[in-house]
């Protein structure tokens, strides 16, 4: 549904995007990750039709966005970064305007309004001025405006920024529901959110795609890391002993922890939990905890964007 080929864009001498290529399909949530200034927002602005690229192509629903900008914009719903809204308008007034400006009218507009108010849980705020809404409701209004014309593509630039954990969880549920009929592309800084929610991850750094794939593919590609926690009574030599196991590439100790907390870096494809447990049992070291590191995406993010 979205196909981006060799997309490049510069601001003066600064290259914001450099030959970026990726695809996103209907029924799939794609996370666009990267540090600040990586080029995520520039990519979203180009995909939404706000900015033009210097080179490369964007295809939306099979149509070249440079040749058919209006048709492509009609298929796209966009929640910009910081969620700009017309503060002086009331929620329903704003959504009606958003629908009418996209060519909806009469019964079609009324049912679209009902649908987005219900989908986004906006009924309690429907008659209120946007300027008087909480951050969570404002975010919902922005998403409702992006959805009013039933777009095939939904671009959400940091949708959960500034939301409390409850609001963020509700928003994740909403995005998951929307993804059944829409290609959702979202940019986020919350890596756990991307890991839990997304079917595909595109990691961008300094305008270049560092890595992309499904979470499973990326997890497989990432060398596993084990976290082992020993009681304080265990000897200091435990670190050296584990480092000596076959398949261990490095062992780091967390010096700030009270117990002996070790990060065990394994070679690609190795699962050494059994070996570490057996070693601890043989040596009589009290092993309190042994697990695979779950926030592998954060580790990958740090590794690729540092």
């Amino acid at each position: 549904m979205i196909k981006v080929e060799n997309l490049s864009r510069s601001y003066g001498s600064v290259k914001a995007l450099d030959s970026v290529s990726f695809t996103a399909s209907v029924g799939q949530i794609t996370a666009f990750l990267g540090p600040n200034g990586a080029g995520k927002t520039t990519a979203f602005k180009i995909l939404s039709g706000y900015l033009a690229q210097d080179s490369g192509s964007v295809f939306i629903g099979g149509m070249d966005a440079s040749l058919h900008p209006l048709q492509c914009r009609a298929m796209t719903g966009y929640l910009p970064e910081n969620n700009p809204l017309y503060e002086d308008m009331e929620v329903c007034e704003f959504l009606v305007w958003g629908g009418a400006a996209r060519g909806l009218c009469g019964q079609a507009l009324a049912s679209a309004l009902d649908r987005v108010v219900q989908t986004c849980g906006l009924a309690p705020a429907a008659g209120k001025p946007i300027g008087a809404l909480s951050k969570g409701f404002r975010q919902r209004v922005g998403i409702a405006n992006a959805l009013i014309h039933s777009p095939k593509i939904l671009l959400l630039d940091e949708p959960s920024s500034g939301l409390d954990p409850n609001q963020a969880a509700e928003l994740r549920g909403l995005i998951r529901n929307l993804s059944h009929e829409t290609a959702v592309l979202l940019s986020t800084h919350i890596l756990s959110e991307a890991q839990a929610l997304c079917d595909k991850v595109v990691l961008i750094n300094r305008g270049v795609i560092a890595v992309q794939g499904t979470p499973q593919e990326l997890a497989r590609a990432k060398a596993p890391v084990l976290i082992a926690v020993f009681e304080q009574e265990a000897p200091a030599s435990v670190q050296e002993a584990i480092a000596g196991l076959e398949g261990v590439s490095a062992v780091e100790r967390d010096r700030e922890a009270e117990d002996i907390v070790l990060r065990i870096y394994c070679v690609q494809g190795a699962d050494l939990r059994g070996e570490v447990f057996a070693l601890a049992a043989r040596s009589g070291w009290p092993l309190l905890e042994l697990k695979r590191e779950r926030d592998w995406l954060e580790a990958m993010f740090r590794e690729l964007t540092a």
Partner: peptide
């Protein structure tokens, strides 16, 4: 200034 230009100029309107 407020960023609403992004809403306005991404509408399917010339």
């Amino acid at each position: 200034k407020s960023g609403t230009a992004e809403l306005l100029l991404t509408l399917p309107v010339p």
